[in-house]
Design a protein around this nucleic acid. Structure first.
Length: 202
DNA sequence: AGGAAGATCTACT
DNA sequence: GTAGATCTTCCTA
């Protein structure tokens, strides 16, 4: 059974949403095919108080979606890669969760075509790779992941019993003290189990 | 107008 | 483990 996550689900602290998104399933309708992947790695981002956040310098044209309704799709480009975020917290409070990796479940042939790789583990084990595999670009900005008509949605398909691990965020120049990266312990589909520059905390 | 930085990825050693 | 590609946005002049 698949149940769409509610707008309220996202209207909370991004660290809580990031942790609870592990095991949820992304559904992407792309040119007639249906792609599905289970989220195995996420990171939480805050506003002005977070030196690693796109929102740290205030509201600007490129980051304005972080002030939008919870559940809004926010795609940003870094180093030529698209990064898929979902906006969190009540409207007006900038914050978001970055989806860093998914485990491919359905539409794997299409994902392999999009990515031009055949190794299942290398299909969506990184924020840029995941966007390429699922065809996620800035065209999708502003969509709501809780909207049944959206071509990009997130559902609860009843997956439970995953062991959650946590570490500092990857690739950021300056991190907060609290570890804000969450991943499924032992999964073959996460980007890295142990970040090189920071020790992994329970 | 130009340079630098960045929530990355790949290939190579 | 490190280097280079890549491209959009921001900051300074």
């Amino acid at each position: 059974m698949e149940r769409l996550l509610s707008k309220r689900f996202f209207e909370r602290d991004p660290a809580v949403v990031a942790e609870e998104l592990l095991g949820k399933v992304i559904i992407r309708n792309l040119e007639g095919s249906i792609l599905k992947g289970m989220i195995v790695e996420t990171e939480a981002y805050y506003g002005a108080e977070d030196p690693a956040s796109r929102a740290r310098r205030g509201k600007l044209p490129h980051n304005r979606l972080m002030w939008e309704d919870p559940g809004t799709v926010f795609v940003y480009v870094v180093h030529g890669n698209n990064l898929f975020n979902v906006v969190t917290m009540p409207r007006g409070i900038p914050s978001a969760v970055l989806i860093r990796a998914v485990r491919p479940l359905e539409g794997i042939d299409t994902m392999m075509r999009n990515r031009k790789v055949k190794d299942l583990r290398n299909l969506a084990n990184g924020p840029g790779k995941l966007c390429e595999a699922l065809g996620i670009t800035r065209d999708l900005n502003g969509l709501k992941v809780y909207d049944p008509k959206s071509p990009l949605r997130i559902v609860d398909s009843g997956i439970t019993g995953l062991e959650v691990a946590r570490s500092h965020r990857i690739g950021v120049r300056e991190d907060l003290e609290t570890p804000l990266r969450f991943y499924v312990r032992g999964s073959e589909f996460v980007c890295r189990n142990t970040p090189s520059r920071h020790k992994s905390l329970l």
